[in-house]
Amino acid sequence: MSATIPLIDKTMVGQHGARPGAMGFLTDTTLCIGCKACEVACKQWNQLPMDNFGFTGHSYDNTGDLAAATWRHVVFVEQISDSTGQRATAMAPFQSNWLMMSDVCKHCVNAGCLEACPTGAIIRTEFDTVVIQQDICNGCGYCIPACPYGVPELSATDHQAHKCTLCYDRLDSGLEPACAKACPTDSIQFGPVTALMEHAQTRVADLQSRGVDSAYIYGDRAIGGTGGIDGNNAFFILTAEPEVYNLPAYPELPQDKVGRAFLTTFGAALALGVAAVVALRG
């Protein structure tokens, strides 16, 4: 693997916990031209309203973030000059120096939002994707901080939680998700997770053989799908550290902490009970 991205456990590269029949996205940033077709195609299919209107000055990213009405978000990072301040002329093949990446819900193998949801509104579908059932959600908002990637958000209009459904309605009818279909350069690819992961590994090897040493997969057990998440069904090929794209490098599944947290709380309860008995004894 790359010398640039220090991975915790290299044996985990390409490892993934997806269940049989899992479908997902491979977003290959090296092919992304930053056109934002995915953002619009998603809004078109899912009939999502305009949001976050305003000029940010953050390169060409005026979207800012994944949100209740933005389920694809293209990140723009300008790294035009080298360390000496010289503008780049000869560059790596494929996307370089102006990084663009179409972010999306990761559809985790073990999903924080799903496990947090107290109403059972968030389900795992037969495609191993994670979907919020809008007829159930009551807007408690607990899935929002429970996502280690900052994906779901409460809508300001219907006050329910929303995020990418991986076009569950389209999948159910045998259609490709809107963003992957629209993507002009096939930066967004849709398919069975195992096949995509194989393809991603071939592609990374190809990129590295062409001199793009920094290419790697984000969203396997080695990076991105770590800490009990066990892999993302929507994963990425990146060429810079995850943080550059505003992604956590080694996220954790929050619910893995619940048992131990309750245990210490139980301990504290015991201690406080004893203290109460001691203090209040007549």
């Binding site: 056109c35 619009v40 490709e176 809107a178 629209a182």
Partner: peptide, 15 residues
């Protein structure tokens, strides 16, 4: 030509 794909403007035709 496009093989199913569209750019953001094309994708916004409904809009």
């Amino acid at each position: 030509i496009n093989g199913g794909t569209l750019c953001p403007k094309g994708a916004a035709t409904w809009g």
